[in-house]
Write a protein that binds this DNA or RNA. Structure first.
Lengths: 107, 107
DNA sequence: CATATGAGCAACCAGGAGGTTGCCTATATG
DNA sequence: CATATAGGCAACCTCCTGGTTGCTCATATG
């Protein structure tokens, strides 16, 4: 699943543990679940659940390899979330927004 | 409160109702709470709570005006969230250090 | 083959999130 | 002044979320 509603996307980002996982994955490397969880104060199961959520949101990819599962970052997912923020931020951000402000009489 | 941990930021975005509110605010206009809630299938109280969360995350600003409260979008908040996504989405080119700072620095 | 290890599954639990309703205050307005 | 309207506060409820533990399966490794 790589297409998810925006709220689901952001909800997936709305947890410090998951942000930590993404940060660790941000170097583009492949990590097994156990290795991703190293140092974190939660069980492996918890990490696996977080990865489920990140995967459903399209932020990571699982690849089975032997008895391990290799996790990688999916930058397209990040891109999608960023795009949404652009939409909300841009309209008011650009000159059009400013113009509109002037026209609608705040100035 | 305009400085919030990244997870709090994204968590605030992780709800369809709140995204709807932000989308409505994206035109740069001022909206009273009641007006923001118009058409939504939730009570005014629920909207107010959502706005609390959005405000804590730094996405909106409240301005009291008479018996109403005018809500406006806070672009800087959006910007902050987008910045974070930029860090994670960026390829391995040295931005990673900054990402670590963001996550571990203020935790 | 025996055993250790990575990962999935399921049941379960506590706390927080989103929602409601009721009541109160303050500001407009007839 | 009386009344309608915009919001805030607080109690309360339900369900989801993040977490755990226990068990099983599959794959490496001695």
């Amino acid at each position: 699943m790589s297409k998810a509603e925006p709220a689901v996307l952001f909800a997936a980002l709305g947890d410090p543990t998951r942000l930590g996982l993404l940060a660790r994955l941000a170097d583009g490397g492949e990590y097994s679940i156990a290795r991703l969880g190293e140092g974190l104060p939660v069980s492996r199961q918890a990490v696996a659940k977080h990865l489920d959520i990140l995967q459903d949101a399209g932020f990571v990819r699982r690849r089975k390899s032997g008895r391990e599962v290799q996790i990688t970052l999916r930058r397209e997912g990040i891109e999608t979330a960023r795009h949404w923020l652009d939409q909300v931020g841009a309209q008011w951000d650009g000159t059009l927004g400013r113009l509109r402000d002037l026209l609608e009489g705040d100035g």
